[in-house]
Amino acid sequence: MKLGLAIEELHRSENHLARVLLAVSDRHKADHEVFYVARDIAGWSQRHVAELARIGADFGVDLDAEPEGEPGILEKLQQATSDLLGRRPEPGLLLLADLRHVHREAAGVSLDWELLAQAAQGARKRELLGLAERCHPDTLRQMRWANAKLKESATQALVS
């Protein structure tokens, strides 16, 4: 069985999504809602990372329960820069690109959860299926957030 592989891949992709969300947050400190919500929902991916590491042990994979990418000096610098650039129009377009990126990454993670859930069902791994059922809705909400924020921001960024 390759369940361990699937868990490992999801652990990687959730870690990556958390980092992407935190990076988007840092880049858009002057867009306060993006700054805060991206951080709040990065927390979901970080929680998934910890849970995947825990369950990974049952399937013979040794994964780090600590999520990667706590903000360091570079990220703080990024926040300060984004504040300083707040008076310029370009961040609006950058935000659209970043939200598109979040949506794509979250969509990938969503598919990974689908794969894991299918496998868990096939292998009759109840606990693993329960984990997927618990976590996957968070991923869908992350996607919907990126989609909605993109829709909301597009007109002003492109028309004005």
Partner: peptide, 20 residues
């Protein structure tokens, strides 16, 4: 009606970046 109405805090952001 293409998106929710622009609330004041977002209006301020658009004033900040110069599009309002």
């Amino acid at each position: 009606h293409y998106s929710p109405p622009t609330h004041i805090m977002q209006q301020l952001r658009y004033i900040e970046e110069g599009s309002i």
